[in-house]
Simulated assay, not measured.
Amino acid sequence: MASSRSGFAELLRAWRDRLSPADAGFTVTDGRRAPGLRREELAQLAGLSVDYVLRLEQSRAKNPSAQVVGALARALQLSRAERDQLYRSAGLLPPRDGTVSTHVPAGIQRLAARLGDVPIGVFSADWTLVWWNTMWSALHGDPALLPAVERNLARALFGNGAAHASMLPVRSERGPDALAASIVVDLKDAVSRYPADGRLDRLVRELRETSDAFARLWTTQPAAAQHTTDRKTILHPEIGDILLDCDVLVVPGADLRMVTYTAAAGSSGAGKLDLLRVTHVAKPA
């Protein structure tokens, strides 16, 4: 086990040194000496403490969980083969084919990192948030403050835990039930495509047992139209009502959804997004 932990630590350090800060969305200054990510930057991207990353790199932290390894793999923008190598070096089995993938391809991360002025969240097929930028945190609250299992839109809409408690009030021009109905339809589709995914099965069973609204929609909701552009008003605790266009972009081949919020130039929404940029530190989550 000691040699396994050593191999994990070596991979972590090597891949951290390899990743360009600019590709991860950080501003590179002239005085920067490290060619790759700093330890605190990796911790920030993965939603971990700096001390824990340090202990992992020094082989002092034992048995990182699959969630931790997955978060590090996404933060380091690893390929699927590299991700699987990192899992094995931690003594874990890589995610199986036929289950919902939380892997975000490096190209998608680089693209999203370069759109730092736009709130962006990347979701897996079960609507778990797997990547976000600073503007997303500024608009919706920092997902890193939630337990990893709670970073799920279905839990935010239908659950009774931290995700639901932290979700800001949102009004949709498509009506109050449109988002909830479309999420249920998406989960039904995900279940049909990933029947062996235990985490997805537990999510659906839990919500059917604890949420009358979810159970009703699961039983009665017919196939819905694909996600289209929606206009949403978000009640922000600091800025007030912000009217924005919300688009859901599907990532071909990765079964991911990239959710973006934008506003027309010169609009009230654009001005409020500018205010959010000024009042929040410009660094990715």
Rank of each mutant, 00 (worst) to 15 (best):
T128K: 12
R174G: 06
R13L: 08
K283T: 15
T228E: 10
D245G: 07
D97Y: 12
G198V: 11
T220A: 15
W15C: 01
S172H: 08
R88N: 06
M258A: 09
L115N: 11
Q221E: 13
A138S: 09
L54F: 14
Y52M: 12
L45P: 01
A148P: 03
T279Y: 10
R208S: 08
A2N: 13
W127T: 09
Q67A: 15
E10T: 13
L243I: 14
I183Y: 01
E238S: 12
I234V: 10
A34I: 15
I234D: 00
G271W: 08
L139Y: 00
A270Q: 03
N160L: 15
A61Y: 04
I183W: 02
L115K: 10
A81Y: 07
L56V: 05
D212C: 12
P105Q: 04
E82Q: 11
H140R: 14
L92P: 07
L12V: 02
Q221G: 06
D245T: 10
M167Q: 11
R83D: 05
L203V: 04
V191Q: 10
L207V: 03
Q109R: 14
R216C: 13
A156T: 02
R155P: 09
R216V: 15
V278G: 13
T229R: 09
H236F: 00
A144P: 09
M135Y: 04
T99A: 10
A154V: 00
E41N: 06
D142I: 02
C246R: 02
A264D: 14
A112S: 11
R18T: 09
P21L: 06
M167F: 09
A223H: 15
S211D: 02
D189F: 14
L146M: 03
R60T: 08
V130P: 06
V100S: 02
D212V: 15
S137M: 06
A90L: 06
V68I: 11
D23R: 07
G159A: 07
K232P: 05
I234T: 03
W136F: 15
G161I: 07
L203G: 01
L168D: 01
G198Q: 10
W136K: 07
K272Y: 03
A144R: 11
N152E: 03
Q58E: 10
D201R: 15
Y52P: 07
T220V: 13
V191R: 10
P35M: 04
Y261S: 02
L276S: 05
D177N: 11
D255A: 12
K232A: 08
L72P: 04
Q44W: 10
P284E: 05
D186L: 07
A165I: 11
W136H: 11
L92Y: 03
A180Y: 02
S65R: 04
P252H: 08
Y52Q: 11
L111E: 11
R74A: 03
A181W: 07
S172I: 01
H103K: 05
L48E: 11
L45A: 01
S268Q: 15
K232Y: 03
A165H: 12
R277C: 01
N63K: 14
D189P: 09
P147I: 05
H164D: 09
R216H: 15
K188F: 10
N160C: 15
V185L: 13
E10W: 12
D230W: 00
V28H: 07
S268E: 14
D212S: 13
R13Y: 10
F158E: 01
